[in-house]
Amino acid sequence: MLKEKAKVMNEQEMERALKRMSHEILEKNRGLRDMILVGIQRRGVYLANRLRDIFIGLESLKVPTGVLDITLYRDDLTLLHDQPVVHSTAIPEDVNARRILLVDDVLYTGRTIRAALDALMDLGRPSWVQLAVLIDRGHRELPIHPDYVGRSVPTSKNEVVEVRVKELDGLDEVVICEREGS
C-alpha cells in the first residue's frame, strides 16, 4: 500500500516547470529544427504533448510528437509485480538523422531510459538524443544524465514519486508516497 507523504508540485508549479524546460530546450536547439518529441509510455506521452503545445504557443511551430513503449526492452520484468502490458509505439516520422527529445515523468535508476534508448535505436539512427524529465529523484544505477529537469527531488528508496496528469488522473500534480509495511 502506498501512503501519500508530501506534495512536490501542484498544477501551476508543474506548468511553470514545463515552461522553463521548454525555454531551455529552445535555447539549446536553435529553433527545434529536425526535432521529434518522443514521450515514453505512459505519462511521458502526456508531458511530451504539453511541451509540444507550449512550443506551438511560443514559436507557432508544431514539433512532430510520438510515443515510445519500452515494455519489450525492460530488464526488470521479473521484478515488476503486475502483468506487464505492452502499449503502442507510434513515431510519426522516420527517426534517422533526427534530433530526438525523449520525455519521461520521473528519472530514477536510469533503466527505463536505457531501455528507451535501445528501443529508439531499433527504429533507426537519430543524430542526437536528449532527455527531458519532470522529476529527477536520484539513485541512478546507470550512467544516464538528463538534459532538462523540472525539479530534482531527493528521495529515499522506500519512497515512490507519482506524477499525475489530467488526461489519466484527473489533475496535474506530483506527490511523494511511501510504501507502508515494508
Binding site: L72, H87, S88, A90, D118, D122, L123
Partner: peptide, 19 residues
C-alpha cells in the same frame, strides 16, 4: 490489444526486441 502492439512491431525494420 496486446497483439495489436506486437503487430506494429512487425512493421519495423528491426523486428527483434529483447523482451
Amino acid at each position: 490489444e496486446q497483439t495489436r502492439s506486437m503487430d506494429e512491431l512487425l512493421d519495423r525494420p528491426i523486428k527483434k526486441v529483447p523482451a
